[in-house]
């Protein structure tokens, strides 16, 4: 399979970043960037990346299943990741997470039937001093309140 020209260019550059014979080093970035483009690490993507880096499927699967950001199942268009770790928890992140479940009608790790949203309870995302915090895909939202969370979800619904 081929990826978009932009991603292909990125891969080409990426592999050159590492010493000769150590191209395997590009594996994790390639997986994450491919996932961003395709939506998930389908069997086809995994096989393609394994082939490009001369790795066995198992060697790639070992890595894919290790890292929590990598997924073989499609996520929603808006992947809402709510941090409930210590700093955010102290400021009510657990309640925000419950609220999001209610509002979206899905459990942790779930995807809405229309494929618009998925929800994940995540570990510290490095926004402790501005918590409670969440990420929608890669975008940070700080100082989240119940009202702001509701509005955020409403606004994202409109994005379609």
């Amino acid at each position: 399979m081929t990826f978009s020209p932009e991603l292909e260019a990125k891969f080409e550059k990426l592999v050159k970043n590492y010493p000769e014979g150590r191209e395997r080093a590009a594996l994790i970035p390639m997986l994450l960037f491919a996932q961003d483009e395709v939506g998930s690490l389908t069997r086809e993507v995994v096989e393609e990346i394994a082939r490009r880096l001369s790795l066995s499927l198992l060697e790639v699967e070992e890595v894919v299943s290790y890292y929590s950001m990598l997924t073989t199942k499609p996520r929603g268009k808006h992947h809402i990741q709510i941090c409930t770790n210590i700093s955010c928890l102290l400021l009510g992140a657990d309640r925000l997470f419950e609220q999001a479940k209610q509002k979206l009608g899905i459990e942790a790790g779930g995807v809405t039937p229309d494929g618009q949203f998925s929800l994940e309870e995540v570990e510290c995302i490095g926004a402790c001093s501005w918590g409670p915090a969440l990420q929608v895909n890669y975008d940070y939202h700080h100082h989240v309140t119940p009202e702001k969370l509701d509005k955020l979800i409403e606004d994202l619904r409109k994005v379609q």
């Binding site: 066995s56 499927l57 198992l58 060697e59 699967e61 070992e62 299943s65 290790y66």
Partner: peptide
């Protein structure tokens, strides 16, 4: 042969075979 590997992490890690 490299037919066995480890998938997942932490307490739920398991040994996995090389062909699905």
């Amino acid at each position: 042969v490299k037919a066995l590997g480890v998938i997942q992490r932490g307490a739920v890690s398991e040994i996995a075979p090389n062909s699905g």
